[in-house]
Nucleic acid binder design. Structure first.
Lengths: 223, 223
DNA sequence: TTAACCCTCCCCCACCATGGGTTATTTACC
DNA sequence: GGTAAATAACCCATGGTGGGGGAGGGTTAA
């Protein structure tokens, strides 16, 4: 099942300790073999294994012992996103690099949340894929430009919030689960003042509950 | 106050519409002039202005009209982080690229939250700085490798959570401000079951309130 | 100097949620 | 066949939430 082009260009018995061992989990055979050929023929890199699904990988990947896994997010059987924690359990020291056509926010953030070290789209040129493998080995976090843009904008607050500074502050406190009383104490204001602010927040956001206010504010990046 | 090396290598009247206009806000004169020289002498790029502080920039930057601003986070007077929203207000279409020696998480996340389009450390080689300017113009989000690593790991969940899947799910719902009753309805389970899960969560996290549970879980990246 | 906005505080009301104790069942995976 | 997880039930006392109104003092900008 595994594919190894390492012997094509250099003797394994000499350099295998220095080579970065790369595994590929990708259901499309053409793409899988293409990456394997690319990486296997790059000096300093070696294919440790190539598998069409997580189920296939699970049987051999611990023995193949890769340093970096290139992982597709859409796989037959268990999805790539859900495979991440399972792979981390099998190989805790191995870096997982997502390589996929998908650019949906949920897939990106679920992948990174599950422990992926980087996220590349498949239009990434070969030399950048190799550079990204090197980068994860150095502790970096390689991302395609559009992925990086989405990741960065996920941090960005909405500048045109209808909430005042105090209202934003209080809504942030509410979102941490604190009671109005505790918020009042920590901000050194009266409970009645907190209640007034909350009423104003609810009016501005057109909601009638804590949960709806938090959701509206998060959706609009007011907090 | 502004520095312009554009005339050194090409006629402004011909190519100025095609050049990317770059401004620099950096208090260290040597560094500021160095970047200005680098960028001004790169084909396709032009220095629109170079200023030692936000206060100096504020007077002229709207007239200088840059496409990209290179911004230091530590400046005399108003800090670079706090200058970001003010610059965005003056020039809403302009991309802000942080260029700094600081790698503290709070500075990074506050910068990105305030609307920075990218974050580079000052050990970035000149050609990568120029590439990053190009990348923000294309809608990307350039980051130094170590910055990207910090950003990605901020998404990463803790795999060794003491909470079960259901407990994690319920604590996430609590963190959105929903009541136990509403959580029960949305998960199609009894209110008493939700209460049981919450009691177990509190025991495992050694807390005695909603707010403390949310804080403990967020601090440890259980949610 | 008004008006607008923000932050602050006060009263009223009805209703619902929270924290904690204990025990017990069913399901599912080693 | 045992352990862990998810489910549910009963008890208790306490506290918080949402919404109605009004009102004073501060700043800022037209």
């Amino acid at each position: 099942m595994s594919t190894d082009f390492g012997h094509l260009h250099k003797p394994q018995h000499m350099k295998r300790d220095l080579d970065i061992r790369v595994a590929i989990i990708e259901d499309d055979e053409t793409i899988r073999e293409g990456y394997a050929f690319l990486i296997g023929n790059t000096s300093g890199y070696k294919i440790a294994g190539a598998y069409p699904s997580f189920e296939d990988a699970a049987k051999k990947i611990v023995h193949d012992d890769p340093d970096v896994i290139l992982l597709d997010v859409e796989l037959p059987g268990i999805s790539g996103v859900d495979a991440i924690p399972k792979l981390k359990k099998l190989l805790p020291e191995t870096h997982i690099l997502i390589l996929t056509v998908y650019e949906q926010e949920t897939l990106i953030f679920r992948s990174l949340g599950n422990g992926a070290a980087g996220y590349l789209t498949k239009n990434t040129p070969p030399e950048k894929i190799v550079a990204a493998i090197h980068e994860v080995m150095e502790g970096g976090g390689p991302m395609s430009a559009n992925i990086a843009r989405m990741v960065i904008s996920s941090f960005k607050r909405n500048e045109s919030t209808p909430l005042t500074r105090r209202e934003t502050e209080i809504l942030e406190q509410i979102a941490t689960g604190k009671s109005r009383k505790r918020i009042a104490e920590e901000l050194f204001i009266d409970l009645e003042t907190v209640k007034s602010h909350i009423k104003n927040i609810y009016h501005k956001l057109n909601v009638h509950s804590k949960a709806d206010a938090i959701k509206a504010a998060k959706d609009n990046k007011f907090i």
